[in-house]
Design a protein around this nucleic acid. Structure first.
Lengths: 228, 228
DNA sequence: CCCTCGGATTGATGATTATCAATTCGAGGC
DNA sequence: GCCTCGAATTGATAATCATCAATCCGAGGG
């Protein structure tokens, strides 16, 4: 593991509250592995063997029903994923695949569950993490049910801008076809949605997006009012 | 509280693992209140004062963005709701209103958080509950993103039938307009979806639905394959 | 530097869903 | 038993979104 990586992982909400000794047990029992791009890490329906922590790279979580499939989340470092499946020891509901070459910390699921049950602080952190994730999904579902495609894109851009405290510039991390799937639309309609937003304060140059007029975009996209 | 109610609440996943003394503290610190139909219990954005347990009646959880709003869940007794907001002490993301006259146990949020932090079994139960709720929402979001309206209705009927172990008869608990909103469509399209399903093994008589041909409906609706 | 290839864009068309309007249906009140 | 009112249904039309097809564009390889 490179210098500075352990601290970064230790700073994750999940591991932050553990005492140092337990954290060492996590690291000792885990594997840090490098994966090439476009590799499937696990598939929906499989039994969860590891909690995954993306240390470096980019990962897509997707799900399918019948023959259609959809991107559920784009995981950026440093973040853990599929905590719910590990906690409940129930099959993954999503398929994970690397988008770029990625380094991932694999923490054995049984170890995670064991430590959670030994360490109240960790259990509490897990509980809070799950509750926050739940709220995120509530918002995502409301988004999908109440907004049409260009509005969803507008809100996505507003959220991205808020997350990275910078000015108005947003760099898309992944291909637009992927963003389209994440937002529940086709690549063609994503293009059209971008051109709609160009009338509402958004400037697009390839994968560099600028929110030129925050007011106008907000008026169009009706972003969530409830904070956090 | 009527006879037999406490045991029923005590049987909830959340309270099942608590020791008797703590459970008594919950009941002692809570209020069982009766609400008339169509009453708003709380609104999205408010600070969560109580964990709610629906003892009797029917409650709708809805959310909105801009001027559109949508039904997120129809709560049947005996179930607790809005656990995530209480755990995280963050504003409600949904609005709750009674559909019928309802009796609801109101457990002060601060008390819930206090007991969770004192009682590891309760914390663990909460964690599992949240993880399961998370999985439920993942499925709901996939459903919304990958299936069209008649398929969503078909899957809803299949799930309802599975939940109540009976034969093929399903009784809709709420108005169809509400079901439409839950499934992310208009009442008009719900009607049309029902008539589509009549060609795929479903018989409709008012709010009595019969799945006459489970095979045919499954073939049409492509239900989830992953169990639990 | 040019070529190639896959993603992105644009246009045309079709499917799905929403909206508007008009009945029909059914439960509750008189 | 009839009336009334809101929900449910049905039909017609419009908006949104997907699909198909044809370029356009840009990064990587020769």
């Amino acid at each position: 593991m490179r210098t500075g990586e352990k601290p970064e992982i230790a700073r994750l909400p999940l591991f932050r509250e553990m005492d140092e000794a337990k954290r060492e047990r996590v690291f000792a029992g885990s594997f840090l592995q490098v994966f090439p791009p476009q590799l499937t890490l696990f598939e929906a329906g499989q039994h969860p063997d590891f909690l995954h922590v993306l240390v470096d790279g980019l990962v897509e979580l997707s799900a399918s029903s019948g023959d259609r499939d959809t991107t559920m989340r784009i995981v950026e470092p440093v973040t853990s994923f599929i905590l719910a499946a590990v906690v409940n020891d129930l099959p993954y509901l999503m398929t994970a695949r690397t988008l770029e070459a990625s380094r991932i910390l694999l923490v054995p699921a049984a170890l995670v569950r064991e430590l959670i049950n030994q360490d109240t602080a960790l259990m509490q952190a897990t509980m809070h993490e799950l509750a926050l994730a739940y709220r995120g999904l509530v918002r995502a579902l409301v988004d999908m049910k109440t907004r049409q495609s260009a509005e969803r894109l507008g809100n996505y851009l507003l959220r991205q801008q808020a997350r990275r405290q910078e000015g108005g510039l947003i760099q898309l991390q992944a291909e637009k076809r992927l963003l389209a799937s994440l937002l529940g639309m086709t690549p063609e309609n994503l293009s059209r949605a971008f051109s709609v937003l160009s009338n509402h304060g958004v400037r697009v140059e390839g994968s560099n997006i600028t929110i030129a007029d925050h007011e106008a975009l907000s008026a169009f996209a009706h972003p969530d009012k409830i904070p956090v």
